[in-house]
Nucleic acid binder design. Sequence first.
DNA 1: AAGTGGTCTAGACCACAAC
DNA 2: TTGTGGTCTAGACCACTTA
Lengths: 249, 249
Amino acid sequence: MADVPRGPRYRQIAEWLRDRILDGTFPAGQPLPSEEHLAKRFGVSRPTVRQGISELRAAGLVEVLMGRGMFVRSPQTRPALTRPRGVRRFPDGRYAEVDGIRWSPVGDETPPTRTDAPLAVADLLGVPPGEPLFVRDVLENAANGQLRQIHRTLVPFSILAAAGTEHAPPVPELFAWFEARGHQLRWNEYVRTRMPLPEEITALRLAEGVPLLHITRVCLDQDCRPLALETITTPGDGLEILHTYDTTP
Amino acid sequence: MADVPRGPRYRQIAEWLRDRILDGTFPAGQPLPSEEHLAKRFGVSRPTVRQGISELRAAGLVEVLMGRGMFVRSPQTRPALTRPRGVRRFPDGRYAEVDGIRWSPVGDETPPTRTDAPLAVADLLGVPPGEPLFVRDVLENAANGQLRQIHRTLVPFSILAAAGTEHAPPVPELFAWFEARGHQLRWNEYVRTRMPLPEEITALRLAEGVPLLHITRVCLDQDCRPLALETITTPGDGLEILHTYDTTP
DNA sequence: AAGTGGTCTAGACCACAAC
DNA sequence: TTGTGGTCTAGACCACTTA
């Protein structure tokens, strides 16, 4: 008995293509048959073929170029860039990111604003919800624009006021600034992932079907009191992050 | 002058729905207008409406239940579960995950197999590509099946052979086992994200548009020689991971 | 039974890219 | 000019859920 095809026609087409992509019949970079061609080959209409293709696009297996055709994406291997996470303190008191990446702002740098702490942020910062926060929001790039991230810094005005200012320096100067005020620093870093909103797709120049990595870093003092919070939003493709630890007693 | 609607009709419909979801006109859990209703309201055909809806589904903004309707997904806030990453060593020499989650295997536990190290894994384990590896693969669940993960453990046979065995115990017994052989342990943890393959969607019971978090943990000895590698694949929704660090000198 | 979404047809016209 | 994908129509029939 021959195998009876299961499920809807569009999925059979998607699976036929997927199998041939994964087994190497259609190698990466190779143009795939046109929609019209596939429609004739499977005896279905073009919208049906397109529905199958949309699954492969969402899964990031193929890339479709307007007016040119459909192409196999490069296989999922390890990302090109590994980004060690951590903060280094030099003997002279300067702070720097361990990953050593030099970011520069994209476009006009918008002036800092203020916001009322939403629940989740207030929780992490140990302040009541609605507490006013200093906000700096920067779209940054590096590596000749190959790399982008959205970097947001949040500091409660109550902490700035205690130091007699209303303006926080950017990270990592902020950390040296905290240290100069007698704090010894540690960080908690929360990592999660989600699909991007349309604005994020354009801002970060994301390809179809690429999720985001979302890092929330809370800077704490020696008594585990939160001082500041950063969120870093980066593309989930071509990038991995690295944490190092030994045993916790 | 009134605003002229831009872009294709289906995107206008998607944006109309998205705006009303984000501004609270359609609160979470509320049923949205039916496809037929939307088609009449916008003067388009049902496939056009469906194309717009497919964008919202991919972005995880709405959830569609067959025969019932379309519903607003809960907003993207902080995930329900925070999973601290790390390994604890008790004074009696036992090791345990810092997150304290008790996992149990789903279905029949498959016996360990062997594989030839692929390039990326060989690189992290410091062995030549193709080196034979011990492989344990387990689909695990916790919290009454609410939580699932795919846990793979890889150990070079060369390391097992040096201890006169061909069978590695599961993590975290493996760590105590290494320690008993004179190693002092550290870990490197690589975090990345990607969209799931169809098998992973079913194994992990993923909803539409939910990316994966993919953790690769390498266990190193005191001389930074890799001993074993684990990969943990978990749903990207409802879960975040937490790393803690202080300054690197 | 009525209403929902899931699948599919057989076309059409358009925008874009390459030749 | 030709071939590609992008958008859209105006229906059809089916499977599923709820009442």
